[in-house]
Nucleic acid binder design. Structure first.
Lengths: 107, 107
DNA sequence: TTTACCCATAACCAGATAATTATGGATTGG
DNA sequence: CCAATCCATAATTATCTGGTTATGGGTAAA
């Protein structure tokens, strides 16, 4: 549970992995070869990054003959959105508290 | 520019740093000592994490006598929210494209 | 002033990480 | 069947990272 959120944050920490995820979000399903070509790194490196993204739930893979196709799963971003929302809400709640204090001081 | 987003993602990749940020969001401004006590790690480690968070813009520091107080700056999360939104929008756009294709096939 | 305290930085170390090359399994094409 | 292609995994390596202890500067307290 807390573990999966950690996987998510960690997976997105690497710029190369984010670039792969962005490509898949923007360009749809693509083969490992298609992802490797413009990446500037070796094919094994791409495969490893995809494995990390898959473990975090951010991508899903599919085999077709001798190629593997990967597609983005942006729904996996939900925990991240939740977390940022919660942090912001804490923040706003503190402002509300401050408002309360100020209002009480007015009286 | 693109650098700052990387700082942000990387800063949030570590669970200890996220915990510090959460504490500051939830509990408001706190001294290094107050943050160290329940953290389970040494004071220098906390100081270094706070430096990373500060470089990412996620916290701000203030000196008062011999103590340093830090507070959260959740507004720094904005680029992250933007990014997740963009990724999700790409995704939805692709669904729209698929809808178009299906509608054309119906005709 | 002298002592104690708070914090940041330095120096160092162990484990994680991201890259490479080498290899092999599975599949397609000739 | 044979050769070529695609991809994942293994092995290796250099670098990054997160932790520690040691230290010192600055402030408060005695």
């Amino acid at each position: 549970m807390i573990e999966s959120r950690d996987l998510l944050f960690r997976a997105l920490a690497d710029p190369t992995r984010r670039a792969l995820f962005e490509r898949l979000c923007e360009g749809g399903e693509q083969s490992v070869g298609a992802l490797t070509a413009p990446s500037g790194i070796s094919q094994p490196a791409v495969s490893k990054h995809l494995a990390v993204l898959r473990q975090a739930g951010l991508v899903a893979g599919r085999h077709a003959g001798r190629q593997s196709y990967y597609r983005a799963q942006p729904a996996a971003l939900a925990p991240l959105v939740d977390w940022t929302g919660r942090m912001t809400r804490f923040w706003e709640a503190r402002f509300d508290d401050l408002d309360d204090v100020l209002k009480r001081m007015d009286q």
